[in-house]
Amino acid sequence: MLLKKIFTRAAPWAFAFAVSDAAFIFTMFLLSPEKTPKLTAYILLASALAFAVGCFAEQRRRKKLDLALGEFAVNMSEKTALEVDRVLGGGFADRLCLAAQKYSERGKRAVELSGEADDYREYIEEWVHEVKTPLAAASLLTDNRADEMSADVNNRLKAIFHSIGESTEQILYYSRLNAPHPDINFENIKIGSCLEQTVEDFEPFISSRKIVVTLPQNDASVTADRRILLFILSLLMSNAVKYCSQTDGRIVFILHEQDTEITLTAANNGEGVRTEDLPFIFDKGFTGNCPNRKKATGMGLYLARKYADAICAEITAPDVFPPGCTFAVKLTFTK
């Protein structure tokens, strides 16, 4: 390979020497044929030497160029560009400096875009915080003034405000996915108390639709971030409430502790998910190909998976469900 390279580089020069040597040797032959053999040897030797010196010089220049290009590749600035130009012998400064300039412009644009994304993220945080105050007021209002409205109106309002709350939580957590400084704090948490809190949050839906929720008899401690765990549980609960049977809804939580892992299964008795859709349910924006699929953003399970990853847990949709259920999501924590 190397030999081939050297050959292709040297060939034109070797050819030039050969042609000029041949011309001189021929001329000498014409002028004095008897001295030709000795002179031929002399000429050939001289041109071989010249060729060798040329090769050597070229090799050194190539090395210098390699170094200069190395610097340029790592940091395309005017300084490194001019150095390459110098080694090349000049004449290429304009082109090289243009390359360096475009590179620096791209770099600046990247920083700008990153700053813009940060601004967006910050604004979303502020916006969500702002909207939580009226939401809190609305939710307390429906509790406090239940006697000023019919039970039906009260339940509907509660459901509506809860739904708005869920959407704002989702966008907040979505925006935090790519935040530069993730805010994660691992601690030992008893899953039981988190489940209780989640069920408490969904109480209005559970009682108005008379959904039967089965919580695990046992409890276990996992190492996770409390807020994130509660968020994931709320996503799973929201789905379970949404999709469980309308007439006799059932949601089952099962907690299983083994030597190396703890699994929490959340199952419900709704329509279930078609087998061909199962592999995709955690994909961003996936809402299923079935026309009956309830209106959804497809972000719930995507966020659940992303945040499960963040707390080093695994979330899957197994193809076996607890008795009486048609769909389950399994959250696995390694010990």
Partner: peptide, 15 residues
């Protein structure tokens, strides 16, 4: 500082 929320919080505690 939000008047609506403050009102409801007061109501909740009074109740």
């Amino acid at each position: 500082d939000d008047a609506f929320l403050r009102d409801e919080l007061l109501r909740t505690f009074i109740k």
